[in-house]
Design a binder for these strands. Structure first.
Lengths: 160, 160
DNA sequence: GCGAGATGGTCTCCATTATAGACCTACTCT
DNA sequence: AGAGTAGGTCTATAATGGAGACCATCTCGC
């Protein structure tokens, strides 16, 4: 967390600020019927959120890589999912696919300008994930431990 | 990629900066074998990226909502997926579930402090998605139109 | 006191999607 | 010739997603 987009540093905006922005967006989408084709969250983030997309974008952040290099870089992705995910990212214009007709033709994947630009919000999100990782793991442990128990705190009767 | 420049406080850092940060993180994860249990991307973002999670977080950003209110707010989610997604978010400590033993017992879901804090990176990502939405739609149209065609640009032979 | 409607879910079934792993063509190196 | 690399495709099976039926409880109108 050494570098942050200066947003929290300069003006310590109240936490409601982000909530307000998002609520407003959400209301706008709802006004359009929350149509999947028009809602950026459903249309764009769903793709980004798919298991391998972000990982591949990050892997390609440093430098372009070829197909098999990517396979080695992201150890437990299958060839099929790699192909598929790369196609999706290419279709969305986040990466470019270049075939070099060399002796054994080699294919290189690189971030496009669009792909570069998504790294900024992605970095913020990864930063969040890293700094809250411990808390999340702990929350999960607590949740799993409480399974079947009835804490009986005020308003926590748990009729699950 | 091994040095972290100290220039990142005030000025909007050049786009390479994010790439450097991410590459560094990625290298660190790789050093640990990219273990799914230790990698924040695979462990945290996979959940956030799931189809409904972000949408629910955004829906709850404004104010707490009850189960059926959420059903109405996010029209085409099924009861099953709503339950499931809420459980995931609760397990990760992003939302809290409160049961009020009223006449017909009502259940309220609200963002926790953790959940509030994720709104910040989420807002950044949503902002990106909205401002690049047009470009992405266009890229998709171009990609789909080019299916089966061979552009033959330099280094784009496409033996697909 | 009876059916209708709201509360917050669970359960079952089917369709879509993900994953592992075999297979394929072309080329080079020893 | 045989092994290795390149970049994939294809198939078979496991996991996931979604629609909708079902359930128990309470209240309201009549």
């Amino acid at each position: 967390m050494s570098r942050l987009p200066a947003r929290n540093l300069a003006a310590p905006a109240p936490p409601t600020s982000d909530a307000e922005v998002l609520s407003e967006r959400f209301a706008a989408w709802q006004a359009q019927g929350l149509d999947a084709a028009r809602c950026p969250v459903r249309n764009v983030l769903d793709h980004l959120g798919s298991k391998w997309s972000t990982l591949l974008l990050i892997a390609l952040a440093e430098k372009p890589l070829r197909f098999n290099a990517l396979l080695r870089t992201v150890p437990d992705i299958s060839r099929r999912m790699l192909t598929q995910t790369l196609r999706h990212l290419e279709r969305d214009g986040l990466i470019e696919r270049r075939v070099f007709p060399s002796k054994p033709p080699s294919v290189e994947y690189r971030l496009s300008a669009e792909g570069q630009s998504v790294l900024t919000p992605l970095t913020a999100l990864v930063g969040w994930a890293e700094s809250h990782f411990a808390a999340i793991v702990e929350a999960r442990a607590r949740f799993d431990a409480a399974e079947g128990a009835a804490p009986a705190t005020v308003g926590t009767v748990s009729t699950r």
